[in-house]
Design a protein around this nucleic acid. Sequence first.
DNA 1: TTTTTAACCAATACAAAATTGATCACATAT
DNA 2: ATATGTGATCAATTTTGTATTGGTTAAAAA
Lengths: 228, 228
Amino acid sequence: MTTADGALIQLRAWLAQRKLPSNGRLPPEREFAEILGVSRGDLRKALATLERNGELWRQVGKGTFIGTKPVDELSVVGKVADQSNPLEVMNARIIIEPIICQQAAINAASMHIDELNRCMVAQRAAQSWRQYENADNRLHRIIAIASGNIVLLALFDQLNAIRRAVVWGRLRQHSDAPPTNHHSFSQHEKIIASIAQRDPELSALLMREHLEEVRHNLINPGKIASIV
Amino acid sequence: MTTADGALIQLRAWLAQRKLPSNGRLPPEREFAEILGVSRGDLRKALATLERNGELWRQVGKGTFIGTKPVDELSVVGKVADQSNPLEVMNARIIIEPIICQQAAINAASMHIDELNRCMVAQRAAQSWRQYENADNRLHRIIAIASGNIVLLALFDQLNAIRRAVVWGRLRQHSDAPPTNHHSFSQHEKIIASIAQRDPELSALLMREHLEEVRHNLINPGKIASIV
DNA sequence: TTTTTAACCAATACAAAATTGATCACATAT
DNA sequence: ATATGTGATCAATTTTGTATTGGTTAAAAA
């Protein structure tokens, strides 16, 4: 038996008899090594073992804690946005939004269909890119609302927040002229129609195709380089 | 024409010719008033007008920014949790997690497979419900990590946060004894195996079946009434 | 060789100081 | 007398500086 194994045994014994503070934090490594009477290296090996087992978690500058690491649910958008990029966000949309659209086809009320059609009217009447974008965002969000699941809507909003944070500050050189992206119009209309006629699979397929085209335009910045 | 109207005109002209920093922030009021050569009060009136039009937004201690105010994703978890219920969260999981699992089968690295197997060992060795639950949460989260898409991981964490907020305080009367839910064990192992052998469709199917069984146990609270 | 110790690094927490939009009181001007 | 500019003050937020902590490496010691 190595001394590192001995440290692990001592650590387990200490954890078993000690009553931990409410936040589950245990002493910093340097003190803890003295308390247990082992070297810091051996203590770290023992802690690493318990961390692999998921019995505790550590973080630089914070400490060592018993249990599972809590997900920091706030300001997650900014951190994710820093680590991500427009393409990754687009890929996530292609994965998530079609199934939300599928649920919308199952659960949408006629009220939602009407609202979607109103969005199309507003989108066609848009006289600036800002108005067009607003109408488009609203359209996609109403689909999420129509899914009938508040949790799905919350996830959609989260995804949207990440998207905005990622493209935030990047080039947005589109003019103020209203877009002439009529192909996107027809795609939207087909999606709405498939929802109206209660065809979940078709809705998901059309939404996926629509987003994949948007991704294509994102990768190949031709005439239209905006995220719709 | 009042002096306040003149300030609005000067502000618009300044915004039209000046190139704004990437974050869209414009100078603090005191400096800005000097730059434009107007009083701070008139500048504030002009800014208020543009704020009403949604062309900019302001916040105390932060500054004035061009564009629409980013949504505060903060404390959204609590609001959603209030309006939702365990079944709805479960349904959202059944919709979301299978496709995340599908992506994991496509993108998982061998490191992730190893980690998943370690989770299974920890889950089998669990000697209390707490340890079992920790291992299970970690398993599902590693699958989300293995998807290779940070945005998907963020959405999974959000879903998890909502789940915890919803079931928080509700029935959780399971004893401290380790669970004998061996069927769940085999389901987990099959999912890991399907990921390891790169079968996206099978992975999604198995995850869906697994979660649907959890939902069944949630609706029919028999022997096992925990959300796994 | 292996283990321990020490030193240093990067990330985080915490507190103090500076910044900033909002608001009010008062002086000034027309 | 009303309106406008000026300054002070407040509360929210950012910034800055210091101490702490896990992570890492290399030298010292066994």
